[in-house]
Design a binder for these strands. Structure first.
Lengths: 327, 327
DNA sequence: GCCGACACTTTGAACGATCCTCGGAGGCCA
DNA sequence: TGGCCTCCGAGGATCGTTCAAAGTGTCGGC
């Protein structure tokens, strides 16, 4: 028993290929009785349209490409994985498959995407982890590769379509939460890697407290996004009299919280970022990035672009949510 | 400037399509001079063979399918993600793309795979997280879907091709390591979910110590794979006089280590499982599953199966490595 | 000078789905 | 009854690649 095709099914049912094709793609064009008969035959035979033939004929792969983001250190490292999950789910709902591929550098990423698009294996792509002066957007535009970015155009003019989470607002909300708990000296533990995302979060904290530059400097510690470094940073902040800390990641927050617990300081509070399983398990407040919403919006932007390549590209900023772990 | 195809390139170079095809697929069939000319033209024009047309003609998608494993709790949750990474890298090296898709249940996973295979979007698949009485292997066999499993056939007879890591040997090695450090009362913190993987690791510890059933019971605590539960378990083990603990995961091990540090017990030791970034950062010994090797072997088995569907299926057990964090 | 051997190269025919054009059946109105 | 329109379906052409088979041209041997 060979795999059924449009032609074989058509011969069997004594209708034309076109009729079956219509049943699948434009059911309203076919008479009810015929449609029912064809649908039954499709069901019975287990016929599945060949994605390859479709792609060839329609010049549409119905697939999206996405680089497998490199392994990250720390507890928050799984964050991009969860975004990828949501992206794949969203694409799936719209009938798009997702092709993942490895790449060591941004340049290689763009090369691979060009290859996949050129060979009609994907129609468009999603890029993540935009950075200051990231040149992928312009490379992709130059190569005519439709894309959407998770991450805004840090220091760029035109950047194509993008979605991002307002980290500044999230950090500000976390800070307000701590102020609401009665804290007055609230520190910030951030990243020392020059990440624009980290700078944005720090800005939210700073803005909310309206600190003088000198005070801000005293209350900030920037370090690697690692457990040990975070613990060290918390020790230092506590020595400086701080009673609460906003952290740029859950990795740092979990470390800070561990220090707090070790010292039994029940009047000290910590807020993290990314709402990871670990902070959730520890009952640690954390700023959640709504990845599902981000993925949905990103996909909508991408599909809009595919539908009308001439349309101007948009950027969307999504508000994060502080999970306070209360009631 | 449209996208070049075999035919357009051939016309431009005044050679036939087949010649260009040969340059790409069987370079030795083409005269050196012609080949050089064609290669230059390919380079210059940026020609890329259409994956869709190839798949259609060859009835080979040159792609593998893999379910996006559901989000896991805990620090070790990222483990399957790292396996997926290695799998994608290995496939890529052999010229295979990887298509990922979501699925809520094992049954849905198999359905999606059948659909992808039927529509010529993939040629084969990889399944992970095999469980006691997992019926995916037989479903896949019934549907004639080539596959390889990461995970052995727990309680099954014929299971097709598989690769797994010898968790029992890993736990035994961890235990030997602790014995070598002079520990005599070594406990085990495991999972309470009935996982065969967990049982295997526990068996390795038990076997190495040659305990009586009563003693073993007293030295084992099984709980959820969560930080809080692991910390609680460690507290209890310490009360029972244990001086070292083998843990079924890094999540539990990090929790146990945190308890140890909080109590300042420098003569107590903990060993984890999965060699995650967190345990690495804490300098905690951990049993590493060589995912890259597993992925390579899994892919080899899968490709062998595709090359010769009649060949008997194999199972391979890979030895894990204890990372002692010493010099 | 003819033949076969050999090394390349070309041509036609698939792979399976969809677009496009066209034809037949039936209904409606004059 | 004839003309016209609508609704469905039929068949050819097409997407870009590769296989199979047939076609060129060159050379040596007899």
């Amino acid at each position: 028993m060979k795999k059924p095709t449009l032609a074989s099914l058509a011969a069997e049912l004594k209708v034309s290929r076109q009729t079956i094709s219509n049943v699948i793609n434009f059911p309203e064009r076919v008479r009810d009785e015929t449609r029912a008969r064809v649908e039954a035959a499709i069901e019975r035979s287990g016929y599945r349209p060949s994605a390859a033939a479709r792609a060839l004929r329609n010049q549409r792969a119905m697939a999206l490409g996405m680089r497998l983001s490199p392994m990250r250190d720390g507890i928050s490292g799984a964050f991009m994985d969860s975004f990828m999950r949501e992206m794949v789910v969203a694409a799936d709902r719209k009938g798009y498959r997702t092709v993942v591929f490895p790449a060591l550098t941004r340049v290689e990423e763009v090369e691979r995407l060009a290859e996949l698009l050129g060979s009609l294996a994907i129609d468009a792509c999603i890029i993540t982890d935009t950075w200051t002066d990231d040149d992928r957007p312009e490379r992709l535009q130059a190569a005519d590769i439709p894309f959407v970015a998770f991450g805004r155009p840090w220091g760029r003019e035109d950047h194509g379509a993008w979605v991002d989470v307002d980290g500044r607002a999230g950090a500000a909300e976390a800070t307000r939460f701590l102020v609401g708990l009665g804290h007055e000296l609230i520190g910030f533990i951030g990243w020392s890697d020059g990440s624009p995302v980290g700078a944005d979060r720090k800005a939210g904290w700073e803005q909310e407290l309206g600190l003088s530059a000198a005070d801000a400097d005293r209350l900030v510690i920037e370090c690697d996004d690692l457990f040990e470094a975070g613990a060290e940073a918390m020790e230092q902040l506590l020595e400086r009299g701080v009673t609460a800390a906003v952290c740029a990641s859950d990795t740092l927050a979990v470390a800070a919280e561990t220090v707090r617990r070790a010292k039994g300081m029940t009047d000290v509070a910590v807020v993290g970022f990314d709402d990871t399983t670990v902070s959730r398990a520890m009952g640690l407040p954390s700023v959640r990035q709504p990845v599902d919403e981000v993925a949905r919006i990103a996909l909508d932007l991408l599909l809009a672009r595919l539908a009308d390549p001439e349309a101007p590209s948009e950027g969307v900023l999504v508000a994060p949510v502080l999970e306070t772990r209360e009631g």
